[in-house]
Design a binder for these strands. Sequence first.
DNA 1: TTGGCAATCTGTAACGTTTCAGTATATTGA
DNA 2: TCAATATACTGAAACGTTACAGATTGCCAA
Lengths: 350, 350
Amino acid sequence: MDRRRTEKNAEALAQGRPTLKTLAFMTGLGVTTVSRALKDAPEIGAETRRRVQLVAKQIGYRPNRAGVRLRTGRTNVISLVLNTEREIMSFVSDIIYGVSEVIADTPYHLIVTPYSRSQDPLDPIRYLVETGSADGVIISRTQPNDPRARYMLEHGIPFATHGRTDMGLVHPYHDFDNYAFAVEAVRRLAGIGRRRLALLSPPVGLSYHSHTVNGFADALSEVGASEVPFNTVSIDHTIEQIRMRTAQVMRREDRPDGFVSSAAAATLAIVAGIEDAGLKLGRDVDVVSKQSSDLLHLFRRELLVVNENFRLAGSELARSVLGWIGGAAPGTLQSLSVPSEVLAYRRSVD
Amino acid sequence: MDRRRTEKNAEALAQGRPTLKTLAFMTGLGVTTVSRALKDAPEIGAETRRRVQLVAKQIGYRPNRAGVRLRTGRTNVISLVLNTEREIMSFVSDIIYGVSEVIADTPYHLIVTPYSRSQDPLDPIRYLVETGSADGVIISRTQPNDPRARYMLEHGIPFATHGRTDMGLVHPYHDFDNYAFAVEAVRRLAGIGRRRLALLSPPVGLSYHSHTVNGFADALSEVGASEVPFNTVSIDHTIEQIRMRTAQVMRREDRPDGFVSSAAAATLAIVAGIEDAGLKLGRDVDVVSKQSSDLLHLFRRELLVVNENFRLAGSELARSVLGWIGGAAPGTLQSLSVPSEVLAYRRSVD
DNA sequence: TTGGCAATCTGTAACGTTTCAGTATATTGA
DNA sequence: TCAATATACTGAAACGTTACAGATTGCCAA
């Protein structure tokens, strides 16, 4: 028996990457003991545990992911599900970096699961669940009644949504308070005398569309300003579409004297449209915009901005998913990011 | 024996996800036969093959990735290795989408492997190779003498670099022709009478730094223009640093009358710096900039731009890696993207 | 008839891990 | 002293797949 073990494991030493068998051979223990020693199981002697862990560290043992996954079903993978056409660009990299930051010192890997315009957004989720390709999922473009969240709840896979749902179901999320953003934006515009405001909102159907629209409406009535309808475009439209629509609106008699914009790139288009109509930002009209990187003030220093931190969102989302996987209650893994004040870069001399 | 098989596999039917055993039971064949039938092995009867494939499709059989990976060592994973601090933002999302597009109808998953400023760039590569976590790797921020490329060649793992190396070693790459970009930019500036040019280059040490610098220098001597040194900053510096340095240079007597900028965000900073110095873009100075999304003309319509398509880069890189994995010769998997003409958005009436 | 051979199909083992059901040894209680 | 029990360890089996080394069948040449 002892001979047999020695023979069998002699080859273990020869091969490249150390496995439990290698460790078992080196320590003279069984693979079971080694396995348990590495995960601090209670029924392993303190000295044995230390010895095994020391040797493991010395020879750079890393558990084989496929082995673990096959045996336990745990993948040690978090999947970030992204729309390949509509996601805001800086959004994506920041979210990824935020997630990366959090999972860096865990065994988790991040896989990006894309889906395209033409696909049912549920497709990638079904794929992940059916193939068991991830232990946790992060989705964006969340809807009030989100079939993906419902599906994942039904199938018991941990997830977190970027944006809240409104289905009476509880799950982890991280959201930026777009209601507060819209309210602050309107108040600010009213504060500098703007009275006829237009909103470039997120696309209809997404949760933060209604949050933004509601904040906008509530604040309008609070400050006694009026709305100039601008809902034939959203931040999902192309730059050109937004630009043309803005120019159109700005050429009318009853044009807005203030804009609230939910995305930085769209704001470029709004300003271009304003100038197409021969009007001047800061004189004829003011614009409050969300931005995720601090660049808009370089574009036009008259712009008023509110910062949204997507990197933070990524971190929070990752933390939430890992928390759920780790057994925390989904209801405790929700967070809301409060907007910064409305910031002005206009020089005081103006 | 027949009884035993039947009993054993009855459970296979009960469980959730179909495996080869499920298929074997349903078709009355052995798992080996099923396995081979699914991958069109030659020694399987034509009718059997069809039958197995039909049933597999019907019940939605998907090979278990962990099983395949454990048995074969193939992970069906491509890893994109990214610096979490220095990568250009739009870059990241576009590359990811480009890669996604290509691997969408393959069994490959995309994992993002980040590394931070503080780390040795070789760390994530070592990790991937040592743990066998990917079948192929894509790296960016390529250097002329790139230790990562060397390491991967030595260890026999397929990869592609975004940017060329210059080590006398052959490997797949995709690169944008930054030499041509710089040449065209200088020619254009010279064409509109600019004679004292400054270059905001990629960071020293990366391959495309020298390409850009060389193109710039060659074209300068070709058109007989002179260089205003501007190499204390690069596109890796912060917006504020670039802006201040630009303002500084523009306040000097011998200031440049033309800039070539290797990145769009940096261009915003250059323009801001120019205006900080009280000068006017298009009158006192012209700027040619690379951009990866069509937004700069909204910023200042006097800007001259050259487009770089990162989504295409992602696709090409993915194709290259998959090609190498598939056995193609690395030397045949190299591509160079030719810059667009220098485009002007300035109105003709100006 | 027999041997050989091609065409199809099959069981077993192995990849590295964890879990189950133990086994051996020392320790305790009566 | 004996049995019961706690402590520390162990082998075998299983997860799903593929590769290896057969096994079975039918057909044909000799």
